[in-house]
Design a protein around this nucleic acid. Structure first.
Lengths: 145, 145
DNA sequence: GTCCCTGCAAACGTTTTGCAGCAGT
DNA sequence: ACTGCTGCAAAACGTTTGCAGGGAC
């Protein structure tokens, strides 16, 4: 499936900026990026798209389920390419030392959340679990320093 | 323990604005408030404290473990009085219909998180789990409307 | 040709900061 | 008295929006 087809499939016109952004997100290694990160990285990659457009497009991608928006720190959003509509769901383990983000999935946690929501009469729609910790390297660094 | 003593105990000078804010947080019913909420509610309560001071004081309270900062929506922080240093920890179930926040605690989720962190070699420091859903009333409203 | 999209710059809401005066110890 | 705090107003930050021109269908 071409990028244009993928975009039309979710109801978005296949415009040049949208194609560029979508393909860019697929080829970069870092999976969790802010709008500004994307803007700068695309510039460096000789792909010029206005910052406002990046925000608009990411918001549309989010609504279409192509991308997930995270609020790990609260002062800015990070965007992650999400393989459409809740498939491949995972949670995040964030290192507060170096910022590394480890993705994980745990069936027990998933099931227990559903049960908790039921316990309070809520219909669960989504959830975010962010565990903050220190990764192996940062623990060593902390012990030395 | 007086408010002044409580503040000094965590290393903060017992100034009038800090005392007012701390006591205010203890007496209001709503436990999750933005800085602006607190500012407005205190004004209505004839307790005048500058908004900038509220931000500064809440940040200090957070560092001291008196308060927890949440990023439920990402566009502003909500603050909650937290009975010092992780005691009474709980997670949140947020209704995306009416904004109601239900607090909960689940031992299975807590333990499993610790295990997950260990699995990836992380030393867990904190975590936030936000489940978004529809509360009972909002489900009914959705069915009717 | 139509409508939706983009880029720019300006606006926005939240949060932070510089500074002069004031309060707690 | 000394230090650190407060209030104000202005700045900073990430993000959104109005508008005129341009591109997709």
């Amino acid at each position: 499936m071409t990028t244009s087809e993928a975009l039309r499939k979710v109801g978005l016109k296949a415009t040049l900026p949208r194609i560029k952004i979508f393909e860019f997100l697929q080829r970069i290694e870092e999976r969790h990026l802010s709008a500004e990160n994307i803007y700068q990285a695309m510039l460096a990659d000789h792909e010029e798209v206005g910052l406002a457009t990046i925000y608009r497009v990411l918001t549309q991608f989010e609504a279409a389920g192509l991308v997930i928006r995270h609020h790990f720190e609260g002062d800015r959003s990070l965007f992650e390419l999400g393989t459409n509509k809740g498939a491949n769901h995972h949670d995040h383990l964030v290192c507060i030392g170096c910022g590394t983000i480890q993705e994980f999935f745990d069936e027990v946690i998933e099931q227990t959340q559903i049960e908790v929501a039921k316990r309070f009469g809520y219909k669960i729609i989504d959830h975010n679990l962010h565990i903050q910790g220190l990764c192996g390297s940062c623990q060593e660094a902390a012990e030395k320093g």
